[in-house]
Amino acid sequence: MSNHRLLAMFKDFDDAFEVIDKIKGKALSSVHVDDVTMMSPIEHPDIDEVFEGRPSNIGYFSLMGAIFGVSFGFFFLSSAQASFLVQPQGGKPVIPLPTNFVLMYEMLIFFFVWTTVFTFIGMSGLLSRRGTLYSEKLTVDEIGLVVEVSDSDLDSVKNFFKENQALEIREEKV
């Protein structure tokens, strides 16, 4: 069972990617690449190739937000227009669809945006309590790799990182 979390710092993306490649090549039997988290000051353009199969599903929620927005827009406006106090005007529909399309369009965008933002916050684990394993150098120019390991594998993983140009290794108990 993993009860230690390690953060290894590297000087650049190349060093970090090399380590990930080695982990993929089973250089460490106790660590699987899916359990590796990379922390960096920017997003590397090749990150998707390095960590294959880690999708972002925010788009589905955005779509749901948009559908909700357009439906809400229609029902909200219709209920406002077709209230009991409505005074029908000659020749004009009680629920005028063309003008409602404009407002439904705005509602679609409104809910799309808010759903996307809330989903981003939720899915990214923002506003949630996380471990204290962090270095301020991660927002400057260094790259961090975080792995969880058990007591028995702790030393071997640390040695592996040291052998692979890790500048610094920090650890915390999970």
Binding site: T37, M38, M39, S40, P41, I42, E43, I47, D48, F51, R54, S56, I58, G59, S62, E106, I109, F112, V113, T116, V117, T119, F120, I121, M123, S124, G125, L126, L127, S128, R130, Y134, L138, T139, V146
Partner: peptide, 28 residues
């Protein structure tokens, strides 16, 4: 910063979110 740590999950979701918002802002 809402507890931003810059891990790959956050960056991935960030990129996706930013692109989605950019796409919807243009018609808006």
């Amino acid at each position: 910063c809402l507890g931003w740590r810059g891990d790959d999950r956050q960056w991935r979701n960030f990129r996706r979110t930013y692109m989605l918002l950019a796409c919807i802002l243009i018609p808006l």
